[in-house]
Amino acid sequence: MSEGLNFLEKLDGFAGIDRRWIQIKEAETSPNYGKHPEERTINELMKLGVINLDKPPGPTSHEVTSWIKKMLGVGKAGHAGTLEPA
């Protein structure tokens, strides 16, 4: 619990969220499945990761995103300017 919650508090801090956590019950998580997000391998990060890109001013967001997609060899990449079709 604590390790996962530490990471969640880190997320809160990153976003500047100042909400208290309320624990309802004691619970443990099995080490046999799942993985702490900060222990992901590079291949796992490329499947569920995000890059805070310092975008160069010239090219469009779309162009930059497509370069990253090629550079990393990932199947899909998107930027925050696009709304996915519903």
């Binding site: 569920l48 995000v50 890059i51 990932v74 990449a77 709304l83």
Partner: peptide, 17 residues
């Protein structure tokens, strides 16, 4: 700055948009 989401993370783009 431009957050770029990879693969499955693209599903969360809506919350950034």
């Amino acid at each position: 700055m431009l957050p770029v989401a990879l693969e499955n993370a693209s599903k969360m783009l809506k919350y950034l948009t």
